[in-house]
Amino acid sequence: MSATWAYFWWVILPYIAMAVFIIGHIWRWRYDQYGWTSYSTELQEHKRLKWGAPLFHYGTFAAIGGHVIGILIPKQWVEAIGINEHAYHLFSAVAGLIAAALVIIGVTILAARRLFVPRVRATTSPVDWVALILLGIMVGLGIATTAINAPLGFDYRETISVWFRGLFAGDANIALAQQSPVIFQVHAIAAWLLFLIWPFTRLVHAWSYPLWYLWRPYVVYRAKKAGPPAESGTGGRKWRKIGVRY
């Protein structure tokens, strides 16, 4: 790989992806909240979704959690709380494989119904196909990475992770990224592409997890007032309990 290309893959692409990711979300939020939804297909097909959707999502959350631990948290911190290389590797291999298994079963079910159930297939828009195929590639590569690395024990925490955190400090270490096995590199690049298109796809639904449902009053009242009210959790309090005045 020439130095220019390396520079592109490991510095320029990540920065473009991050910029598009952030600006894209702001743009989408301001101009297309009407399109901001999970595009559920449960109405059309539920027998397969019942297994596919929870397996995929819970598996994905486990995988995302693993990435946060492995990439965002520096190795020294983990060791500082007494988890050594061996223990970490054992944990990450076992948890990673479990997560990978959940995701792989879930994704297979979801992909099968999207491809072969005509009602679901009919709802899929072109941008959905792009997102779903890219997501599929990324998941596939991620699972391959986990499976290959489980016996290998390549320590990404001293290479990829350092490079990744370097991106945010403004000095990304290209050499470190290039030291990792090719499968890691392709997986990382696929991830940047996914972030690049994320704001323009249904994946934005992930940011709308309605956690504040846990504490808001059940029945929401709204008075006619100027302008759209802020989404709760992001702005002023718009909820009011029955029986409580203003």
């Binding site: 009407y34 999970s38 559920s40 109405l43 009242y221 709204r222 008075a223 006619k224 989404e231």
Partner: peptide, 20 residues
């Protein structure tokens, strides 16, 4: 939401996230 003035129940199309 339920409108305070006349009690009509509506869905805010911009806020619905399709959780169904």
């Amino acid at each position: 939401y339920k409108r305070e003035e006349d009690g009509i129940v509506l869905v805010d199309q911009d806020r619905c996230r399709g959780w169904r």
